[in-house]
Each structure stands twice: as C-alpha cells, then as structure tokens.
Design a protein around this nucleic acid. Structure first.
Length: 424
DNA sequence: TCTGGGGTCCTAGGACCC
DNA sequence: TCTGGGGTCCTAGGACCC
C-alpha cells in the first residue's frame, strides 16, 4: 500500500508576489487585503489569475475578467504576474520537498505529488495513517517557516484522492481522503468539483439528474459511457476513488508540444500586421524549441476571431525544424489558408511531433538550407543572451527585413503539404 | 475596461490501403 | 460487377487542467 501526498501552494501567484513586494520593502502584505494577480486590461489580457482570501470573500473567482472583479470590489488591488519569479519559488519548494522523498511528480508550477516514505517501521494501517498526517503537518509547517508561504497537503492511497483532499478547506491545512472517508467527505460535493469534471461535463450531468459526486458514483457506468464515452467511465471511476489510468499525464518530463499565443490589444484585419505578429510568435516558439534541443514536425496556427469563434489549421513539415524562418513561413501559409477575413483577436503558433536532431532525417537540399538558417538563429540567440530581450526584437526585425521576410507567402517547402499525400 | 496563456487528451470524419 | 470492411493516419474541434 502506497501513500501519496498532494502539495498545493495556496493562492500561489498571489502569495509569491506578496513575498516579492515585502522583500522590496513594502509594508503591506497583499495576502491580507482584497488583491488579485491579473493581466493588463488595456492589452485585453485582463483575467484574474489568483486572488487573496478576502478577494474571494467578495465573490471574485479565478479566470473571471478583472473588470468584473472591480465591480465586486472597487478598491481591489491588481498586481501583474511575474512568471520568472514564480519559477524560482517553485524550484525552492521542490528542492525542499526533495529532502523528504525521492518520488516527486511535479504537476504544475505550484502543485506536485509526493510518495510518502515511512521514516521508521510502523505497525498497522491506522498507525501508518497517523504517521503520514504528522509528517505532512511537519512538511507544511516547515514550508511556512522557511519559505514564508503556505500550502495545503492532501493525503490518500492514490494521487487522485490526495488531490481531491488538498482542495478541502484552505489555507495552510492537511486533509486526508482515505477510501473509507469518500462517502462522508467527497460524495456530498457538487459534481463539478471532481477532478476532470469541467463546466461542460457538469451541465451534461445535471441534465441526467446528477448533481453531486455521490450521485455520479452511484450512477450505472453504462449510462455514463453511453453519454460521455470514455470520459464517462473515467469520471465514474474518479467519483468512486478509483484512479484507473495514471493522472500524471502532464508530469512527464518531455513536452509533447511547444507553443505561444497572444491576445492582440485590438482586433486586427490587416494581413501585414498579422504577419508581423506571426513572425514574433514564430521566433519565440523556435527559440524555445532550440533551447529544448528539439525540432518540430508539425506546426499549427490558432486564430480567435473578434466574436470568440476560433479556428486551427495545421501542417506537417517535410523536414522537422526549429528554425525561426521555417516556422514563420509555415505559419503564414497556414494563416492564409484558413483565415475567414474577419477581425482577429488572438493569434497562436503551436508546434508538436517533436524529435531530436539525431532522429531528424534530412535530404541534401534541406541540409544546406538548414545549416545557414541555424547559424542565423544561433547568432540571434547570442545577441539576445548578450543584450537582453529588447535588443533582440530590434535585431531580429532588422535581419528579417534583409532576408526578405516581409514578403507575404514564401513558396519553398510547401509543395503538397497537408494534403495527405505520400512522399516515399 | 468583458472574457489569458501554457499545456494534454479524446473524438469524429475523411483519405487511403489492402 | 452497384459500391464490403478493417486498419491506420491525418485534421479540426472541443473538453479539461493549472
């Protein structure tokens, strides 16, 4: 029998920003006032990413527009996110946890699973449970004292139940959710609180008369499968505390894809303007691919229109690449092929089918071309490293113009792609 | 001053092959 | 000579997570 902890930082982005502000000399702890971490409304990035406890008391929810949050609490304070800093705090946390267990699965920047290792021989099941609770309390307190932020820790025999447990009363709490506690602690909760039951599934369950996790657990799984396919079976298992397939999908170290997207500060219909944005996105994504030392075999462009309707269009590259201009050219072509002509609110480029250079197979023509391009990209990466992000953007734009990147549709490389043809 | 950005997985439907 | 059916790959869209 294994025991899993799920460790979840309370209001992570807000807590971590609070610490940065205090360290910078502020006398106010934003964890103790109505405050949020939110995007810039003027750039239309304005959603709530994290909230303090008192902001929550005003009914402010994560994910809602910052403008709505202000309506609920006019004197709310809003601070910008700083992902670099959050990464540093996350690493500190993982380092501390690493001293307790070799088996840690990081699930996101502020959450992880940890297998509890008995520090001394124990007797029966009840005693092991008691020991795990006191170990969790010790870890939680040590994090608060040394790292100055709080966490919730959930404990159970599998990761699913541990995760559900860490979501009980917050902050700074340890909860258990062992199988014999499921009926009492989990079944009364609304079905939408179950892991993997989002708004859409919750609506469909409501139509079936299923309101709580208990209702779901007691529904004939055949009925759920007939309505929700494999998802129905999975959430029925979850409602009964059965983990089934591993839930650590995202925790695996290797990424399946790398992408960036951006909401534009106003809707854009000018193709030249759109290509400029695609170029910046392509450079960002390509640079991240190079940093990860992988090549992308597939490029996907995502468009969200002024009315929030969205579309994606993808193509497989003849030769996997992490070159900025390869990605840019593919993205422009994809955009042209699927754009309806309506004003664009968001643009994104996402790559997948990643492989390493060793796995890449080049023909002679590609080899010459990609060598040149690689040298250019490396030069740009070096400029970035030396002069910082701002110099980078200007530098790459100048180079881009010399290379003729302003031309609308580059033709090379695009014969027969995404047509399902074979190229043996 | 409406509604982010980073991901993963599943499904339906079409193409293609045998 | 009316045109089955299984397997696999690809694409677009949608649902979910934090």
């Amino acid at each position: 029998m294994q025991i899993w902890f799920h460790i979840d930082v309370n209001s992570a982005f807000l807590s971590w920003t609070a610490l940065d502000l205090l360290n910078a000399g502020s006398h106010e702890d934003i964890r103790e006032i109505p405050a949020i971490i939110g995007g810039d409304i003027h750039k239309r990035h304005g959603v709530v990413l994290a909230k303090s406890t008192s902001a929550k008391a005003f009914g402010i929810r994560t994910g809602e527009p910052v403008t709505d949050a202000y309506k609920k609490c006019p004197y709310l304070k809003n601070y910008p996110p700083n992902h670099h800093r959050y990464k540093a705090y996350s690493q500190k946390l993982m380092k501390l946890l690493g001293t307790y267990s070799p088996e840690i699965i990081q699930y996101s920047i502020d959450e992880c699973f940890m297998r509890y290792i008995l520090s001394e021989p124990a007797g029966d099941e009840q005693e092991i449970r008691r020991m795990s609770v006191s170990a969790a309390k010790e870890i939680k307190d040590r994090i608060r004292q040394e790292l100055k932020f709080t966490v919730n820790i959930g404990i159970s025999y599998n990761k699913l139940l541990a995760k559900m447990a860490s979501d009980f009363e917050k902050p700074d709490k340890v909860h258990t959710l062992f199988p014999d506690e499921i009926r009492k602690k989990m079944w009364p909760l609304p079905a939408g609180e179950l892991f993997m039951v989002g708004p859409s599934t919750a609506d469909r369950l409501r139509l079936l008369g299923i309101k709580t996790i208990g209702d779901l657990a007691c529904t004939d799984p055949e009925i759920l499968t007939s309505h929700l396919k494999s998802h129905g079976k999975m959430i029925w298992e979850y409602a009964n505390g059965i983990e089934g397939a591993e839930i650590d999908g995202r925790a695996k170290n290797e990424n399946k894809g790398i992408g960036n997207m951006t909401t534009l500060s106003s809707d854009v219909s000018d193709k030249k303007e759109i290509f400029k944005i695609l170029r910046e996105l392509a450079e960002k994504v390509a640079r991240r691919l190079r940093q990860s030392e992988v090549l992308a075999g597939l490029v996907c462009v995502e468009i969200k229109y002024y009315n929030f309707k969205s579309a994606t269009h993808q193509t497989q590259l003849l030769t996997p690449s992490n070159g900025s201009s390869d990605l840019y050219q593919a993205a422009c072509r994809l955009f042209e092929e699927c754009w309806s002509g309506e004003p664009v609110r968001l643009l994104g480029i996402r790559t997948s089918k990643l492989c390493t250079a060793q796995e890449q197979q080049l023909n002679l023509f590609d080899m010459e071309k990609s060598e040149k391009m690689l040298k250019l990209d490396q030069a740009l990466d070096a400029i970035r490293g030396r002069y910082g992000e701002n110099a980078v953007v200007r530098g790459s734009r100048m180079k881009a113009e010399k290379l003729g990147w302003e031309q609308e549709i580059p033709d090379e490389d695009f014969n027969h792609m995404s047509r399902g043809k074979r190229h043996e």
